[in-house]
């Protein structure tokens, strides 16, 4: 095969990207676990690990830019490198939001149970499912799967609306719960944002195969 150095570098970039996907799935999994069990140690570990996610993001970006500089990739190689450059941004944000949730967990009391707000566990479940499925669609270059994942974002948005209603009710019933309600609202908002980033990743799965995003040609 010609350009073997190029393929070695492209492969190295993919190894880092896979590592980042793994770290992000781990972060969201642990985030939900720490929330469910009010596990403060785990929450702290998520925050520490966010730095690792950021470092891998930089590494992938650097490798992509180096490939563009040295190899001027075209066709599927160009789509591959540009997809990686875009996807790492959303992966990094998902990592950040998991760490943000972890920080809120640290501020909460044990009695402020995960189950207090009925729809938050559902949001957590949908978030894990969306992240895992989207990254599997990304690895398998499966546009159909990516489109299925995107549909779950509506479910996420609806759950967020439900959480808001629940929180309004809680505050109405007891004004002392305002601070707690804000914390839960922020957690819910972070889950909802994770859904949005997953949708972006799914769009790049389409781009990687077709050069289009939402049927609009980018290159």
């Amino acid at each position: 095969m010609l350009r073997s150095q190029f393929h070695i570098e492209l492969n190295n970039m993919h190894v880092e990207l896979d590592k980042m996907c793994h770290l992000v799935i781990e972060a969201i999994d642990r985030c939900v676990e720490a929330f469910q069990n009010h596990d403060l140690e785990l929450a702290q570990e998520i925050i520490r690990n966010d730095k690792a996610i950021n470092d891998v993001e930089r590494s992938v970006e650097s490798k992509c830019l180096s490939l563009i500089l040295k190899q001027q990739p075209v066709a599927s190689d160009l789509r591959d490198v540009s997809t990686a450059l875009k996807v790492v941004t959303d992966l990094e944000r998902i990592g950040d939001q998991s760490a943000d949730i972890a920080e809120l967990i640290l501020e909460m009391d044990e009695k402020d149970s995960y189950l207090m707000i009925e729809h938050i566990p559902s949001m957590a479940r949908v978030a894990i499912e969306m992240v895992t499925s989207a990254l599997s669609a990304f690895h398998e270059h499966d546009i159909q799967k990516a489109n299925e994942v995107k549909k779950h974002d509506r479910e996420m948005d609806q759950l967020f609306e439900e959480v808001k209603l629940e929180l309004v009710q809680i505050v109405k019933e007891n004004k002392d719960h305002v601070d707690l309600a804000i914390q839960f609202l922020m957690i819910a908002k972070y889950f909802e944002r994770i859904g949005d980033h997953v949708v972006n990743i799914c769009e790049w799965v389409e781009f990687n195969q077709t050069g289009k995003v939402n049927d609009t040609r980018l290159i």
């Binding site: 095969m1 010609l2 350009r3 190029f6 990739p73 075209v74 066709a75 599927s76 190689d77």
Partner: peptide, 11 residues
Amino acid sequence: RTEDYITGRFG
């Protein structure tokens, strides 16, 4: 074959 040529996979 076009893809293979322009991406340098031809050998």
